[in-house]
Amino acid sequence: MTAPPDDCLARNEWLCGEYLSTRREILLDAVLQHLQLTGVSVLLGLVLAVPLAVAARRWRGAAGPVLGVTTVLYTIPSLAMFSLLLPVYGLSAWLVIAGLVLYSLTLLVRNILAGLRAVPEETRQAARGMGYGPVRLLLAVELPLALPAAMAGLRIATVSAVSLVTIGAIVGYGGLGNLIYSGMNTYFKAQVLAASVLCVVIAVAADVLLLGVQRVLTPWLREARA
């Protein structure tokens, strides 16, 4: 009979290089699931948010209900949101995605709408005077000018989604949250700490990446600053 190994795993230490090297596969899978869930949700949210915001801008009557519904959705705590979707989606990844889409949608609609509303009336009139139709006005003038506000919303939505994915652990689709959840049940300190730190790293990396995208997409703002 061999003696039990006396490494940091056996001693259940917070920082454990042994954990990172032996559980590399598990960590990588969890990170990938985390990225997939976040990416799909935020993209779906964006696809839905743009037409909603444009509609709310065009028809004044639509703005009140759209903002009201998004406020109500945003107030519902994440765990309750996932639970309310349980009868619809069952224990699946779509349950987590649907919940996250609703949150991203809320943040994005509000920000895009604020950006569209901030387009100066003179700019719009000038475009119309140059013969721009409503569609071209929207695509070539209004949406580009609303881009900084929209990107700010996208960054907040993405960072929030990265953090909220962890709650998906309740249905087994929580990316790194799964590791935190199982680490809690088994009192596995190294796993909980590693997964938590990775969550924050993903959030910060996504934020920096989107900031870079924003810089590339809005060159006119860079010139104004210089």
């Binding site: 907040i156 960072v159 929030s160 990265v162 953090s163 909220l164 962890t166 709650i167 652990a169 949250g177 935190i180 959840y181 680490g183 809690m184 009192y187 300190k189 909980v192 700490l193 997964a195 938590s196 969550c199 924050v200 959030a203 910060v204 934020d207």
Partner: peptide
């Protein structure tokens, strides 16, 4: 506020619990 958004609530709860 930005930092608070990036840190998952659930992670902090479990870390404190351990």
């Amino acid at each position: 506020s930005n930092a608070g958004r990036a840190v998952p609530t659930f992670a902090v709860l479990v870390l404190l619990l351990l």
